[in-house]
Write a protein that binds this DNA or RNA. Sequence first.
RNA 1: GGGUCGGUGGCAGAGCGGUCAAAUGCAUGAGACUGUAAAUCUCACGCCUCACGGCUACGUAGGUUCGAAUCCUACCCGGCCCA
Length: 388
Amino acid sequence: MKNFRIIKQSKLSQARLGVITTAHGKIQTPFFMPDATRAAVKGLSMNDLKMLGLPAMVINTYHLYLQPGIDLMKKSQGAHHFMNWPKPLLSDSGGYQVYSLIHKNSSFGKITDEKVIFKSPLDGSRHEFTPEKSIQIQFDLGADMIVCLDDCPPNSLSAEKMRLSIKRTVSWAKRCRQEYDRQIRKRNLDNNKPMLFGVIQGGTDLAMRKWCAEELIKISSPGGQGFDGYGYGARPVDGDGKFLAAVLQHTAEQIPADKLRFGLGIGLPEDIARCARMGWDMFDCVIPTREGRHGKLFFWKTNSKSNFLNSQNFYNTINITNAKFKQDLSPINEHSNIPELREHSKAYLHHLLKIQESLGYRLASLNNLEFYLDLMKKIRQAIDNDKL
RNA sequence: GGGUCGGUGGCAGAGCGGUCAAAUGCAUGAGACUGUAAAUCUCACGCCUCACGGCUACGUAGGUUCGAAUCCUACCCGGCCCA
């Protein structure tokens, strides 16, 4: 059974339309997932997310392992039941925490070729993550799409260290693949396999990205060669925040066309549009929710051209906490399909965020997620019409 | 009326002779945020100047001192206690 099927290839670019089939329903690609790292999209209820038509979300192995713990996940028969979320889930491996905690600050742990030693930011306790353990936990979480534990390096790493890091990521991917096969047998999941993703590292160096991709694709098992999909790992921007378009383009080209391409942590709306054009199929990012909580709202510009997604500036942002919105009684978003965003004023949302009221976080997150989901829909339509 | 403690920047509140345009918190203003240690972080925050620097300021008015938010005197205002 093949769980990713390409439906249409754009005549204009590498962009494609597809469908993923999971045990919790189908997903049309390209698509975007918000991050529900600790089993919640901050500020939003599952009903909110259903109302938005959210296709899937990303939960995190490391965070859920620390809190509330995997025993409870097993007892709840997985994250879907625990969260009461009926649609697909993707669990991230904890590889990003190798970067965000340890690479950035070595007092948070240590990386060896064998495993990662984390010191919990919650209470300082010591925890070991092996590739095998990450996969086991992800099976316990019961996610529909799971990710190999990787060593996510800073882009600034020296060439020599980057080479070692990639070797580690590849060796861990092998071990993840073996553990995955073991779990499938052990749990009798032959007809209900989660999809497994490898993560391509290599910083900003095209040759390193290519090498990492090739090594990952070579990994084989009785279950087949390579992975169901491949992710782009590490920050997609340089030190100045400039999008690494050439690296994304080159990395996409290394991934076999019939495999899913997952841009981890991407990104800004224009970056997602560009990546879709390169043939990337799935995205996740904290931007819409985090920046919403911090007051930044995304809005469509009124565009008449049908190929507006190819332009640089197809949207506006405002910072609703700016003083100029204090007295602005106009709707938060008059074009929204969400009644609350049409009926509440900007002044009200300004006020809610100023007093740190959770309703403010919710309204801002709703606005931005609606924008992102709309963006993905427009991208899919554009591909369908050969406009992207 | 008597006693007592106190009056500091938008607010709260340190400071108690020089290193004070004055700690800290809040509020305010702006910015950042890309597989969420993020309801977080950064910067600004008396006035003038891009800046060097200058000016005005710790209730009011005097005084002591080389020098006062800090000491003294009077007055004004507030809290508490007594009558």
